[in-house]
């Protein structure tokens, strides 16, 4: 195993491979997130028929992630607090067994792990990933199957507020969360401060929450009843819960190949069992392309290795297959807008 692979494994990456769903694939129950959004839309005075018509959705049946995004788009514009209020209702939610299992978690860490494992049901738009490093729990949110750029910030706010809100409600107390945003500081981060807590960090390379591990392991009051939902899930109920967004699955494969050396579009396509042209087309359908995904991933890995493992830029550059350090510095600046020294 290479040094890089060992370091990534210590971070808990990459997770085991899983089946995936695409952006246009109808895999989500209308009565899960769809019904929740309909309730919010009704409360905020939208005409439900028009709202559904504009998103091209028939209630009942199954929704694709793209349809869920189309339903969300007008709602996220209803006032500055809309993403945060939706977030309060997002988890544990009423999404069947996965929600029940999430609710019965014993502490924050377990909740994060259950969330990440059952992301296909609980978090179909942003895939959560759990890392443990430097005595902190990190819950990273990465794109599941592509997001419109205009909705990205609001969706990240929604998910961060959802987990902070869920843990506050379940544990009965505010926790010292630190929220990290992969965007620059807005003019007035008041809403983020009120809903997520006073510790906000902008211009990070990830959208994430972090918390000291000892807080994350502090047990919550037990929820009544045996963990029947978890047992049913372990026995194979709700296959969708285990699935991952196509893009999230792809970046996991890419990550595994990154450890073995510099991957190319051709090798990635081969490992997916499709032709390079098909892979390109699939990526375009999610609104991205190969180089963008590779750069994003390398930026993330480099940022994590420097910040969490304390590696020097030279060492990171060498591990990622860069010939010389200045080349890596230039690339890192292109990916993130920062020099490696400034970041570390």
């Amino acid at each position: 195993m290479t040094e890089l692979a060992a370091a990534l494994q210590a971070l808990g990456l990459p997770p085991p491979p899983a089946a995936s769903y695409g952006r246009e694939q109808a895999v989500l129950n209308w009565c899960d997130q769809g019904a929740l959004l309909a309730e919010f839309a009704r409360q905020r005075g939208l005409v439900i028929e028009h709202w559904l018509q504009d998103a091209g959705v028939q209630p009942g049946g199954l929704l694709s992630p793209a349809q869920l995004l189309a339903l969300l788009a007008p709602l996220l514009r209803l006032g500055a607090d809309a993403p945060f209020v939706l977030g309060q209702l997002w988890w544990p939610g009423h999404y069947g067994l996965a929600s029940q299992a999430l609710r019965q978690s014993a502490h924050v860490l377990q909740a994060a792990e259950r969330l990440a494992r059952r992301a296909g049901r609980l978090s179909p738009l942003l895939t959560p990933r759990v890392l443990r490093q430097e005595g902190r729990l990190w819950l990273l949110f990465t794109e599941a199957c592509g997001l419109p750029a205009a909705q990205r910030a609001a969706l990240v706010d929604l998910h961060l507020a959802a987990f902070v809100g869920f843990c506050h409600w379940r544990g009965g107390q505010r926790l010292p969360w630190r929220a990290h945003f992969n965007r620059s500081r807005p003019r007035d981060p008041g809403a983020q401060l009120v809903w997520l807590g006073p510790e906000l960090q902008f211009d990070c390379q990830v959208d994430a929450l972090s918390l000291p591990l000892d807080c994350a392991r502090k047990p919550w009051a037990a929820e009544g009843g045996a963990e029947l939902a978890l047992a049913a899930l372990e026995a194979g109920a709700d296959a969708q819960a285990l699935r991952r967004g196509w893009l999230a699955g792809l970046s996991e494969q890419l990550l595994a190949q990154l450890c073995a050396g510099a991957p190319s579009l051709e090798t990635l396509a081969r490992s997916q069992g499709v032709s390079p042209a098909t892979l390109k087309r699939q990526l375009a359908a999610q609104g991205t392309h190969y180089q963008a995904e590779l750069d994003q991933l390398r930026a993330l890995v480099a940022a994590a290795l420097m910040k969490l493992h304390g590696w020097s830029p030279e060492r990171v550059g060498a591990a990622l297959g860069f010939g010389d350090a200045s080349n890596f510095r230039k690339s890192f600046r292109r990916w993130t807008g920062l020099s490696p020294r400034a970041w570390a």
Binding site: R187, D188, P189, G190, L193, V194, G197, P198
Partner: peptide, 14 residues
Amino acid sequence: PEELMLELARRLAS
């Protein structure tokens, strides 16, 4: 003004 209000929000949050 934004910073003043943010300061108040921070005091309230902590």
